[in-house]
């Protein structure tokens, strides 16, 4: 688990994307045949404001190596201000995780429906970055 055929570390990343922007950008990346590593498992939310920070904690505690959160650009939220609240929550959560050296496993980006390229780039960067950091220290632990 978590290793490729050569026994190298393959990160498992959970991605929470909003229905209106970042999920659509993933769709666009796919239909435009943009290549990016398949490490991220996407979970679609209606809005980044739906993201309960507990989702992120639960993913990390269950052994996810990274968590990605995607939403509409600030000011362009389908629900007007959902991502403004999300931004405060994510910033607070990362501040807490920083005390335990886990903040670098959580990344959020604003990616609009037309930015398939950006989505592919972010996915690539994220996978490479987590590979560098290494596996989640909680992976495989009895928690």
């Amino acid at each position: 688990m978590g290793e490729d055929a050569k026994g190298e570390f393959e990160p498992k990343i959970i991605g929470f994307t909003c229905n209106w922007c970042t999920y659509a950008s993933a769709d666009l990346a796919g239909t435009s045949r943009k290549k990016y590593p398949p490490n991220t498992r996407i979970i679609r939310l209606m809005c980044s404001g739906r993201l309960d920070p507990m989702f992120v904690l639960k993913a990390l505690l269950n052994g996810a190596d990274g968590v990605f959160i995607g939403g509409c650009h600030p000011g362009e939220c389908h629900y007007i201000k959902g991502n403004f609240y999300a931004r405060r929550r994510i910033a607070a959560l990362r501040t807490i995780l920083k005390e335990f050296g886990m903040d670098n496993r959580v990344r959020s980006e604003w990616i609009s429906a037309s930015e398939g390229d950006k989505f592919a780039t972010v996915m690539r960067e994220m996978a490479e970055n987590i590979k560098k950091i290494g596996p989640n220290p909680l992976r495989g632990k009895v928690l």
Binding site: E99, F100, G101, M102, P137, L138, K141, L143
Partner: peptide, 8 residues
Amino acid sequence: FGSIEALE
């Protein structure tokens, strides 16, 4: 703390 293991 510094690490998640320290919190554990």
